[in-house]
Design a protein around this nucleic acid. Sequence first.
DNA 1: CTCGTTACTGAACAACTGTAGCGCTACGAC
DNA 2: GTCGTAGCGCTACAGTTGTTCAGTAACGAG
Lengths: 215, 215
Amino acid sequence: MDVTSSPRGRNRRGQGERLREDIVAAALRLLDELADDQALSLRAVAREIGIAATSVYIHFADRDALVLAALERCHRDLLHAVDEAEAVSADPVVKLRARTLLLGRWAHQHPGLYKVLHESTLNRRNDMSFKEELSERTTIAVRRCMDAGLAPAGDAAVVSFDLRAAVHGTVSMRVNQPDHPWPPLEEQVDRFLIKLVGVPPESPGSGDQWNRGWR
Amino acid sequence: MDVTSSPRGRNRRGQGERLREDIVAAALRLLDELADDQALSLRAVAREIGIAATSVYIHFADRDALVLAALERCHRDLLHAVDEAEAVSADPVVKLRARTLLLGRWAHQHPGLYKVLHESTLNRRNDMSFKEELSERTTIAVRRCMDAGLAPAGDAAVVSFDLRAAVHGTVSMRVNQPDHPWPPLEEQVDRFLIKLVGVPPESPGSGDQWNRGWR
DNA sequence: CTCGTTACTGAACAACTGTAGCGCTACGAC
DNA sequence: GTCGTAGCGCTACAGTTGTTCAGTAACGAG
């Protein structure tokens, strides 16, 4: 329940942006718990870091702006983590598998954030097109497999779209019903890679070193 | 915006259950608009049908009980609609395709309800195992295809699970970002049926008479 | 007509929310 | 030292919420 190492004193001059970051971090924590953007209250965020509710307005126009900023940061961090996971190998298939699995693991560790990012009603009210970068990189990863002859040639955008839909579907189901006895994610992802992308069946990513935490 | 044919007078003796149905119907309308169970307020439901907010408590213990009852009814109606769609043909593949497409169409027409049913945080707080019947019937439909030799033999439960995940994923993406220029659902569903279930590529369900309304 | 029961209403409580305006305090330039 | 101002807190308003409790109007049996 402890918040931060700094005991939240008033910031030095020019360091006012530090509060902004603390607010975003607190919002992310709460959003992960609540798993619903509408349920996040400005006052709860302020309470988390021990500031007055009104101080949030110094950095964010309104609640939606705060949530949007938090999600944008969340997406950026996730993007970085996925890119890092891809670096474990030079094999395009292993890369694609690593990408996909890290996304699944991340969703498992941060179900609330996954829900807010992809399933919140904020998607309707606001433009969240920054998310498209994640999709585009998946398409690139799929195309790499095709170019290397490790997957049948085809429209990488369509295959990537199908793969993303399938993976999002299974992640969504797991995230929304955490108590359900789901089968292992890895096996299902491998089936999707084989059946939807067409990678050879005998290409597991060897070791499972995906368990490093996020951030 | 009009509500019902009866101008909401006090019910006759023994007809008190009519109000309960009206409440559920109003809750479903609002849930479809709001697309969030937490955003539904008892008072808004009461306002919709012109009753006092407290009258809801006569029929439902609390708000969650109302939402749960509404979703249960929603699921029952959906189940019925899907079963009806399956009856258009005797061909197991056509049946499976009809099932899947109707579900997609329904989600497209009732995005809010789809979200509340499958993605609301109520799934965490309450037992909604009544939804499993929909999954089981999909497995049955898949098994029918296998038994008829129209799909490669295999574990129908696993194939059905993969198909449901994929379809839920694509429907979820479309429902959560309605303004995105998505490709046709039919084509993607057909790809899933071919690649995940293994039905022959040349088996379209002929005509598109799926456009009948729901309820 | 009486009277129990059904079907509902109205007022009220306590809690919560986003947001506005004003005020304070300590830093840093001069 | 003085003083502008960045960085924040306090108080308050108006609104909405879930829920409780007491009350009332219509009905139907006797």
